[in-house]
């Protein structure tokens, strides 16, 4: 496992141009870039960078060689999830820190706390990309990811608006003081419930994705 992590770290640090680009974006974060963009972009970039190691593994048929070493098929899958999630978290933490410092200390604006929710990418990207990359490889995988992303976007586009409607209790009246309190509690509760539901779904999908990847790699011939 340690060898796999070192290999992937070495591969990731080969992307020097991209890392310079990241540094540039960091600077922009300090001087006024939107925090949602910063957090989303950084998190996606870091998880994407981690996923790109699958491509290097595939190009030289490295997975086959790795599996002849003291590395089991399960080790390979665990490492890919750990590495992608770990690197994604680093990107997320960095971007939150940079955008917070930029917002709070340099621009003097209040920090947009909703941008924190973009941390879901840390789990969403490996959930979607790792099983696809193991099953189909990176070239075919890219097309399949594109198709699946389209489907997900469509579902979200159709499903999210009703969910948002549910979270706003517009039918309540604000005439009396108790009604306002009730309104706030109701909206807050519903928002938290939806957020918890979304979080549970993502964690569930992440775990399911891990077992799907494991099942794929166990059957795969190298």
């Amino acid at each position: 496992m340690k060898g796999l992590i070192i290999k992937d770290l070495k591969l990731v640090f080969k992307n020097k141009v991209l890392i310079v680009l990241m540094a540039l974006f960091s600077l922009l974060g300090f001087v006024g870039m939107d925090s949602s963009f910063m957090v989303g972009y950084f998190t996606l970039f870091f998880t994407g960078l981690a996923i790109s190691t699958c491509g290097y593994d595939e190009r030289n048929n490295t997975v086959a060689y790795l599996l002849t070493m003291p590395v089991s098929r399960m080790d390979y899958v665990i490492e890919k999830y750990l590495f992608t999630t770990g690197l994604g978290f680093i990107g997320y933490a960095l971007s939150v820190a940079i955008s917070f410092i930029g917002c709070h200390f340099i621009q003097g604006d209040p920090y947009d706390i909703t941008s924190l929710s973009l941390g879901v990418f840390i789990f969403l990207i490996p959930t979607l990309m790792i099983p696809i990359n193991i099953k189909f490889g990176t070239t075919k995988g890219r097309l399949i990811t594109l198709a699946i992303s389209g489907i997900i976007a469509f579902i979200i586009g159709v499903l999210v608006p009703p969910l948002l409607m549910m979270s706003s209790v517009t039918e309540l009246t604000f005439d009396e003081e108790y009604a306002i309190t009730e309104y706030v509690v109701e909206v807050g509760l519903r928002t938290y419930l939806i957020a918890a539901g979304v979080l549970l779904t993502i964690v569930g999908a992440y775990v399911a994705s891990f077992f799907i990847s494991l099942n794929i790699i166990k059957k795969k011939n190298y």
Partner: peptide
């Protein structure tokens, strides 16, 4: 099949050291 070809020989050494 072998290690990714963008890996340097000295990097290969450290990967092997961590693996075996």
């Amino acid at each position: 099949s072998f290690f990714p070809d963008i890996i340097k020989v000295k990097e290969l050494k450290s990967i092997l050291k961590a693996s075996y």
